[in-house]
Every structure is written in C-alpha cells, then in structure tokens.
Nucleic acid binder design. Structure first.
Lengths: 142, 142
DNA sequence: CGGGATCCAGAACGATACTG
DNA sequence: CAGTATCGTTCTGGATCCCG
C-alpha cells in the first residue's frame, strides 16, 4: 500500500503552475474555515436552524459584530440561508444550505483528526518548548 | 445519504458543555490550518523533503520571516522535522513527520471539497454581491 | 430582536537589515 | 544558505452606540 499522496489533487499544481491567491479555491475556502468563528457557526447550524440570538447564546464569547459578519460571509458563499420572520420583534433564522451541509463532511474529517491527535500535538509542543527553555546546547544529527 | 451529523463527534459537545478555546483541539488545529501559509507549506512538503530556499522558491510570495515562523510552528506541533546538514553553506531540510503526513488525508478532503465547490461558491458570491450593490459597475475581479 | 456604523487594541504579515 | 531582529502596515476582532 503505497502512500496515497492525498494532496495530489489539482492542488498540487499550484506549485508547478502559476498560483494566484485570489483564484485559488483552497485558499479561498481555507481562509473562511480558518477564521475564528466560521467552523463553530457551521457546527451550531449543523443540528438545526438557529436564530441570531440563539447562536449568540451558543457562542457567548462572539461579539454581535462578528456573528453578523460570519453569518453574512456564510450567506454570501452560499453555505447558509437567511430567513426573516416579520414578527413584532423581528426574528431571523439561519440554516445551512445543501452546499453548507456538504462541507460538514470533509470538515468532520479534519475535526476528527484534530481530536485524535491533539494529545500528540500538545506533547510535541511541550517537548519543543521544554527543549527551548531547558537543556542549552542540544544538537541533533541524522 | 447518511450525511446525518458529521460533526457529532465530541466537537458537538462544546456547545452543550463548557468551552475553553485554549483547550479546544479543533480551534487549536484550525487556527494552524487556517493561517496563511501552513497548508501550502504542508503541501509543499508532501511530495518530498524540501530545503528552506527550495520552499521559498515554491512559495515566492512568502517572506522569509513567515516561512521561518510557519516551519517553526509545524516543527513545534510535531508535524515536521528539521534536519541540519553542516555543509559549507549550511543547508537545512524539512520533512513531514508521520503525524504531519497523517493530517494530509483529512486535509485533502477539505481541499477536494474546495476545488469541487469553488465554482458554486464563486457564483453564490457573485450573486450576493450583485444583489447587494445592485447596480452595474463592478470594478476589477482578481 | 437583529444588525449596521464607528472606533480602537492587538495580532498577523511584509520589508528590510544584519548575522553565522 | 538559513535564519534573527526590528519596524511599519494591514487586518482582525471586540466594544460601544444607534437604528428599524
């Protein structure tokens, strides 16, 4: 079983071909996924549609500004839809679009990896930091 | 399409349970994946080990400062290893660790999704912007 | 309640200069 | 070649006020 070179999709081409950050699908998506609240918001919307204040209750440490912005970005990218109910105090509901729902799966892969390997990362991080602080003249050779 | 709830790993718990950003594996990993150069660097290291200047040649628009920092972070998290060859002009080689290689697979899932759905995202984005700014004149599009 | 507008602190990043 | 140190800029995100 050879190593399947998972990045041998066309993503591998950016290094050989030209590479425009603006036109790069990966960067475009990763910039969104990577920002502070998108993934959490996606997760919050995964179970069921949520109202604005409901989302805010779920993620207490997000500001209204950022929640709005995150939702707008999701909407703009077609990952979520916004539904306004003209009740007396207006209520707005957000729900994932099929496209938004489809991203949950690959995202779950990464999340699963994160959870499975977080201990290893933490340990590596601790060791690295210890090495920097602890033994002075530590050298490696191969 | 048993696409039920892919985020129903323990990640779903953060919303019900307490949630400490520092201790959250997902946020920890996503913060790294999401930053500007980590994913590209991982991809560049995927095929084979690379030297510092080789990486810089592959990613011309990264500054030495950021390349160094990105590599240090990868090393710190145990995703990559650094090997110094005491040649006359010192040469340093970076290669993925098994842990680093293991992240390529879930990452490829996300990358694949990005590539498959980028057209839809771009279209949704264009439609949203058109609706919002309404009028004709749209300046340049990268 | 939902969300736009403004201001501001801090983090991220790039450019440059210097070192071994 | 492979970095480190410093500076300045840009970008992000939180706080606050306001409005429908």
């Amino acid at each position: 079983m050879s190593d399947d070179a998972p990045l041998s999709t066309s993503f591998g081409d950016w290094q050989t071909a030209g590479f425009d950050a603006g036109a790069c699908p990966v960067r475009n998506v990763l910039d969104r996924i990577g920002d502070k609240w998108t993934t959490l918001t996606l997760a919050a919307l995964a179970a069921r549609p949520r109202r604005f204040s409901e989302l805010h209750r779920i993620m207490p440490d997000i500001s209204k500004r950022m929640l709005t912005q995150t939702l707008r970005d999701l909407e703009r990218d077609g990952l979520a839809t916004r539904h306004v109910f003209p009740t007396k105090p207006p209520s707005v509901e957000y729900r994932l679009s099929p496209l938004g729902r489809s991203v949950l799966h690959p995202l779950a892969g990464l999340i699963g990896w994160a959870e499975q390997n977080f201990a290893a990362i933490t340990e590596a991080r601790r060791r690295y930091d210890t090495m920097r602080t602890g033994p002075p003249a530590e050298e490696e050779a191969t």
